[in-house]
Amino acid sequence: MTDTNLLSVANLSVGYSTSQGVVNAVSDVSFDVRRNEVFGIAGESGCGKSTLIRALLRLLSNNGVSTATSITYEGEDVNSFSDDKFRDAILWKRISLVPQSAMNSLNPVYRVGDQVIEAIRAHRSVSRSEARERVEFLFDVVGLQPELMRSYPHEFSGGMRQRAMIAMSLALDPGLIIMDEPTTGLDVLVQEQILRRVREIRAEVSSSIILITHDIAVIAEMSDRISIMYGGKIVESATAIDLFESPFHPYTLGLKNAFPSISVMDNELISIPGTPPALIGEESGCLFEPRCPFSDATCAQILPQSHSVGEMHQVSCHRHTDVTELREKASKKSTWHC
């Protein structure tokens, strides 16, 4: 198994200390990313998906503390690395990030091309002209004309900036690229162009991609495997097809009901009642329990463990054995709203 896994994360937790107590933004998350796959992490705002990535890349703010039993990347135990060593040896070179709001991640006073060149030269000892050639190549890969290297960020549209950020993330041939909401805020046609480009790039460079988004449609189209996060935990993981054909977790069922689709127009949408948990203080029981129409006494008291319900399919729900009943009831509006 270790051969196929590029990245393995075991029991990663992140707590933020705030004036109102410790916020357990991520708790006990374990996942693997295989070689040459797109691994999607989906969840709503506040589910901990961005914090998870920041913890993984050691980019947490000062009030955040992360712990993990093990994190291995390409068979190497990177959990024991100091922050400095991690930044030096891993970040950008082997794992790169296309940050959320990549639109604002470019420095407005430098030319876009120069920023990418500097990023390369900061990590590799290459001459400026070599770096420039590399950037020309990268711009071509992401679908930007090489002349645009001389432009300033404000001359770029949102889509072009996003392309530039993707070019930067590819600069050092990393084995893993993490994309945090790469198309949020972009128009549909631009989103389509960028996602198509990402697919093409992936076919060429054989990197793995972690794709983080709240957009179920984007993640469904792009990912090989998907994890659904809720309240700082992964509640269900499966291949994309499995997750959509045979979901187990009530939250996954609810999300499916709530997400509109242009291909099935007359479908009635059903929202999930209630609001996500605040994640402050000690938890007991399943975090989705207050919003779950299928919960029983056990759910409120005992934290559900991850159960394997199929090949590469795990779910954290006490009632995973009653899945046929759950699926049938979940498609009815009266189940969720009485």
Binding site: V188, Q191, A217, L243, F244, S261, I262
Partner: peptide, 10 residues
């Protein structure tokens, strides 16, 4: 319309 992603991997 054809650019709108569909929440179904199939």
């Amino acid at each position: 319309i054809s650019a709108v992603p569909v929440p179904d991997p199939r």
